[in-house]
């Protein structure tokens, strides 16, 4: 089982196929999260991400290990970007490869859903005339 767990400044989406591909995997599933132009009809200029890196890497390792326990996976990638990202730029990429497609599809969903719940990364939405920390307030 090979894991790639990283916090990076820029995500190169082209790298992930080589990282997940292997002779035992008939299925590779990848999720890419990107910056959307509108939030509640308001135009987003950019998103800014910050992290508590030491803890974020540990939490991402735990998620990858949990996925490995639940499904029979050959490789897992979890990579999140930090810094300011513009519309259409990738901010997170997660993926898994497995012998058959069911395992990697389910694992991929688990990887991104759990990352969003537990990994200490924070996103600030920058609009034209204000900035908002996402999910901070009810």
């Amino acid at each position: 089982m090979k894991k790639v767990i990283e916090i990076v400044d820029e995500i190169d989406t082209a790298k992930v196929y080589a990282e997940l591909s292997d002779a035992n995997s008939g299925g590779i599933c990848v999720f890419v999260g990107a910056v959307r132009e509108f939030t509640n009809n308001e135009e987003v200029v950019a998103l800014e991400f910050e992290t508590y890196k030491a803890m974020a890497l540990k939490e991402m390792e735990k998620i990858a290990d949990a996925a490995m326990q639940k499904w029979s996976l050959n490789k897992v990638v979890m990579r999140h970007a930090v810094g300011e990202k513009g519309v259409e730029e990738p901010v997170v990429i997660v993926g898994a490869s497995s012998a058959h497609r069911d395992a990697c599809f389910e694992a991929c969903r688990f990887l991104i859903d759990t990352l969003k719940e537990t990994v200490p990364i924070w996103k600030k939405e920058k609009f034209k005339n204000k900035t908002v920390w996402v999910s901070a307030h009810p």
């Binding site: 803890m55 990352l115 969003k116 999910s135």
Partner: peptide, 10 residues
């Protein structure tokens, strides 16, 4: 010690 407000990665 670190204070962790609601996380919002992804």
């Amino acid at each position: 010690i670190a204070i962790i407000p609601p996380v919002s990665g992804g």
